[in-house]
Design a protein around this nucleic acid. Structure first.
Lengths: 133, 133
DNA sequence: ATTGACCCTATATTTACTTCAGGGTTTATA
DNA sequence: TATAAACCCTGAAGTAAATATAGGGTCAAT
């Protein structure tokens, strides 16, 4: 299978797939006689796994750790548990921050809806105001 | 005021403040005879403004646009309104995604809480499973 | 034989900083 | 007075996770 085919199948761009190979997230990629990359089921499985991991916000570094557990089925999975728990914690912190951001943006958004001079703009006046000091 | 002082006052790191100057987000920085940077109220106001903007998730590029409205009080604020509305939209999209991520992570987190072999780990088994295909 | 759709490598760009290497300056202490 | 700790400086490189670009080879069909 050529790179364009697996890109279609997995939803990653061609460039991203080549990038993942360089990063050693996609492995054992074969080559045709003409030097085109050659992919099979193994690489599809790898990319599916990567997609699952990215969907839950894991970094490429963390994905490599999980891959090592895939490759060593006898390894103890405590590290996996920790990684997921810590990811969950981070996501919850981000959610909290984003939620506050939404409130503030929503408030700003309500402060001006005309097109006048900037110095009379409710949004600009609010942003100009000193806080947290 | 030296860079360490304004860093303390504003909560930005020294390096970040120098970086902002290089990016022209902090302007008109003076110099002492010994070549140390010299800050005053103008720079404090600039950094406070930057902090407000970063708190609502704006990029440095967007901050520059807002700064140009500060500097040109007669400019029409329609651009400001649009920028905030679009930021709000982006934040809401991010929130939605993050919320889904939290659900999935929470689910994964429930699938294993022991330290056994990875191939028997509920989390790993779930991640190994193909989806969306 | 040539056009369009693919594929290749290597390098540069992006964002928003952070870190590092290699040095000067100032202040406090012994 | 010496020296060490605590500051400050510049310029370049590193980080994450791709994305884009330049310059060129390959393949299938007309």
């Amino acid at each position: 299978m050529k790179i364009g085919d697996i890109a279609n199948k997995t939803g990653f761009s061609i460039e991203t797939i080549r990038f993942y190979e360089k990063q050693n997230l996609v492995k054992n990629v074969g080559r045709h006689i003409n030097n085109y990359r050659d992919y099979g089921d193994e690489q599809i499985a790898q990319l599916v796994f990567i997609k699952q991991c990215r969907n839950i916000g894991l970094s490429n570094k963390e994905i490599k750790i999980l891959q090592s557990h895939l490759e060593n089925p006898q390894s103890e999975c405590g590290e996996v548990n920790q990684l997921i728990a810590s990811a969950l914690k981070k996501i919850r912190e981000q959610l909290k921050l984003l939620h506050e951001t939404e409130l503030q943006l929503n408030y700003l958004n309500s402060l001006c809806n005309h097109n006048g001079a900037s110095h009379e703009c409710g949004i600009m006046n609010e942003l100009r105001t000193t806080r947290h000091f």
